[in-house]
Amino acid sequence: MTIHQPPSTYILRYFHDVEVLSPISWYPQTLGWQFLGAIALALLAYGIYAQLKTWYHNRYRSEAKQALESLSLESEQFPRELFTIMKAVLSYLSPGNSTAFGTPFFQTLDNYHSPSLPLPLQQRWTLSLVSRYAGLSKVEKQQLKHYCLDWLKQHKVASL
């Protein structure tokens, strides 16, 4: 804000300058506007808090998604790495899920997400984890990867 200075030349010495009013404050002067501003500020703070809380509770999804997308379908260890990632996510959601294998593992996945993996694919995946001679075809690996990515995006968690 600048302070108004009257002209100083001798030609204008008999002229009277228009009086400049004092500046108007941007701060609301009535209690109602202050109250409304405080409510708006509180709502904004709560909205930011809710967004941060949602992000914090869902950060595991983005980490697991990045790990899944980095897996190579040509890798011999693909089924084991995929299982390890999904097991880590289930263990994060509930520490009791850390011992699930086979049918209990798939039941736990189904408890969080409705469309389940077809039974033959479940059996082939489990068999490929325990036997190095049982492998998965590229199509089966793609189906598993797609199912796991879909599961990560859409599973529902009651509360963390």
Rank of each mutant, 00 (worst) to 15 (best):
P120H: 11
V139S: 15
R124P: 01
E81F: 05
L68Q: 05
H113A: 01
Q123I: 12
F83N: 10
N97T: 00
D110H: 15
E74D: 15
E74M: 08
T108M: 07
E63M: 10
K65D: 02
S94Q: 13
A64S: 10
L121G: 10
L136G: 10
S70E: 07
R61S: 01
T103Q: 13
T99C: 04
F83A: 07
S94A: 12
Y60K: 02
K141W: 04
L119P: 00
E81Y: 03
E81S: 14
S137D: 13
G135P: 02
A88I: 00
A67Y: 05
T99P: 04
F106W: 15
Q66Y: 04
H57D: 01
V89R: 05
E76W: 01
Y56A: 11
P79L: 06
N111I: 01
H57K: 12
F101P: 00
K87G: 11
R59V: 00
R132W: 08
E76S: 12
P118I: 07
M86D: 03
L68K: 08
Y56Q: 12
T126V: 10
N58K: 14
Y92F: 10
E81V: 00
W125R: 06
H113T: 04
L109H: 00
P120L: 09
A134V: 15
K53V: 04
S114T: 07
S116C: 07
G135S: 13
F83S: 07
L119G: 03
T108E: 08
L73P: 09
K53T: 09
S114V: 06
Q122K: 14
P115Y: 02
S131K: 15
Q66N: 11
S128I: 01
P104L: 07
E76L: 02
A100E: 13
G102W: 11
F83H: 13
D110I: 01
N97L: 00
S70H: 08
K138G: 07
H57G: 00
F106C: 08
T84W: 05
S137W: 03
